[in-house]
Design a protein around this nucleic acid. Structure first.
Lengths: 344, 344
DNA sequence: TTTGACTCCTCAAACGTTTTAGTTTATAAT
DNA sequence: ATTATAAACTAAAACGTTTGAGGAGTCAAA
């Protein structure tokens, strides 16, 4: 009846006529409580609708069974589908393992590190998930310094001792370039993600490597970058298309950018996939339904999140983590934005 | 040096030679501690790098300053941009107000209610944010029954005593239909969201009302619905286009659905915006960059999340909440998918 | 000298657990 | 009759904080 009164161990203890300690031990299946009593206590606990007070447990155990994840947000409206899929992967795995997930947002920049500090302070979380690492990542330094367990979801070009789950951007870029070269393209331009991202370097390396192997020169004017948004892609593409000698293919380092590029190309009066090829990276759901459908590199985003979370929890539980670095291989998804043969 | 040792009130008390109680009171600016002492204690606390142990505070205060939000996820890959924008709005506001946000995921269905139960149990969160309410919403019943504070982000057609922030789908639908009628359309079809959503009913009502006012008959065959995904929209559109007397305009209740519809229309060899009009709802970022740009109803998603969060926190803090229901007015964004004049 | 008021502080309980170090009782071995 | 062993439990401390009640000291008024 008395809905608002929480049932505590003490209440149970009174009912069964045992000590609080006995009740606690019984519920945790300690062998030094007789089986009979254990069963009885559990029964009573169930009947009384007992649920342990998490805060008390956490205070005592000095751990929170909670992970933290900070969503980088460029602007209120702008949120990358990549992070959502990642978030779902992380959240699902955390839930499956009985962990809570604390999500915060912040715009990348100087205050970002404060947001992290806030979360790390006061035993709010046991560990953190870091996405989209940068070349010099203050967040990683902070976590290393504070000795908070964490896992990074990013690219393998980070050499440090921490858990890392990544896709292989270099290979991804090579797959794209090889495909375009096979389609007869020589004038291949790049719209990369911002240079401070660890990803960007790797993608650029892959592109250059593949171009070199194909005996294709890399035109400096063709190498651009922009923030990860349609707008950024749109503007970058405009620039490329206005060059004296415009490219015949535009490789982008992100599907969201590619969508912007495609809009610019179309506004320029060109036919995507016929006059000019466009490719993306990530294979977000929209890639398949864009007009025309976008050739892109499939990144196992959900699995990245899931696996990262799993690794982090393993480490938190003190289990030995089999591999510190896990690398997912990308694959190319060829659609009409880059393949003439598909237009028939 | 001793990095891992947390500074506690006791440590400070020893240093300043006062009691733990005095330190606690000083840090909370109690008047019964002399100003001098207060300043001194705060100074020392700062120097020692004291941060309160949140779990201890929460245990004592019996509140967590944490909100819960459960992301409905149709499938691992499929996550609606709407929820992300909502999430960002909620998370930003929560952070701004010093609240934590616990995010969980679940697929709508029978186990969903367990996910909610898990979060509500054990003082994990002080309040919940519910999005995308349904006609008979078990979640809302659960929360009412358990007497947990919550806010619903949805549509105003829910008559109950709880905090509610909503956009006006009925008006949104009317705006769309009026626009299409003005464009000369008579054969207007609807691809609605699933009927169990509170939103769907309201959208349908708006559409019917506007049609009636325009003296337009509503053809039963034109009224369809599907899950919120491109695929769903694609299939629904295929059906509509294969009718003996296909519509000249397809109104959808969600931008994501609209993107699928557009793909189907194009695969059908029709020119969107010229042969047939397509509209969406939500004005997600992609709507502007789709090909052609999508006419849609602008929903202030970020603000919905932000405002809902603000209301909930107000209630949790015991402040009186000015209005129980807040209604945001939608506006129509006309783009080429529905307006011939824009094609010149 | 008592009384009261005021200032500045301390005591100790409380929040709900978990866990260490026992205690009690019964039974078995010496 | 003593001692060891085991089984089934309990008392109490601990986690770090907050808070109501109260105490010591000072000062002024009666």
């Amino acid at each position: 009846m008395n809905d608002k009164e929480e049932v505590t161990l003490k209440d149970i203890a009174e009912v069964v006529g045992k000590s609080v300690a006995a009740v606690s031990r019984a519920l945790h299946d300690y062998e030094d409580i007789s089986l009979e009593t254990r069963i009885h206590i559990k029964q009573v606990a169930l009947e009384m609708g007992y649920t342990p007070n998490l805060m008390a447990q956490r205070l005592k155990k000095r751990s929170t069974d909670t992970l933290g994840f900070i969503l980088p947000v460029l602007s209120p409206r702008n949120s990358d589908p990549y992070f959502n899929e990642l978030l779902v992967g992380i959240a699902n795995e955390a839930t499956a393992q009985g962990f809570d997930l604390l999500v915060s947002t912040c715009t990348p920049g100087p205050e970002e590190i404060q947001a992290y500090g806030r979360l790390l302070t006061s035993h709010r979380v046991d560990g953190m998930v870091i996405a989209q690492p940068r070349q010099q990542d203050a967040r990683i330094n902070l976590l290393l310094e504070k000795q908070i367990p964490f896992v990074v979801i990013g690219t393998p070009n980070l050499q440090r001792n921490f858990l890392l789950v990544s896709d292989d951007a270099t290979t991804g870029a090579q797959l794209v370039v090889n495909h375009l070269v096979a389609q007869g393209h020589q004038k291949i331009a790049l719209v990369n993600t911002p240079p401070e991202l660890a990803f960007s370097l790797e993608y650029l390396v892959g592109l250059q490597k593949a171009m070199l192997e194909a005996g294709n020169a890399v035109d400096e004017n063709y190498l651009t970058a922009c923030e990860i948004s349609q707008k950024g892609g749109y503007q970058a593409a405009q620039m490329l298309l206005n060059l004296a000698d415009p490219p015949t293919a535009i490789v982008t380092a992100d599907d969201v950018i590619a969508l912007g590029v495609m809009a610019a190309v179309q506004d320029h009066g060109l036919q995507i996939g016929q006059d000019i090829a466009v490719t993306g990276y990530g294979d977000i759901l929209l890639a398949e339904y864009s007009q025309p459908p976008l050739t892109t590199v499939q990144r196992p985003t959900y699995n990245l999140g899931q696996h990262a979370c799993r690794l982090l929890i393993q480490r938190l539980k003190g289990e030995s983590v089999p591999e510190e670095h896990v690398l997912f291989k990308p694959s190319l998804v060829i659609r009409q934005s880059s393949d003439l043969a598909l237009w028939l």
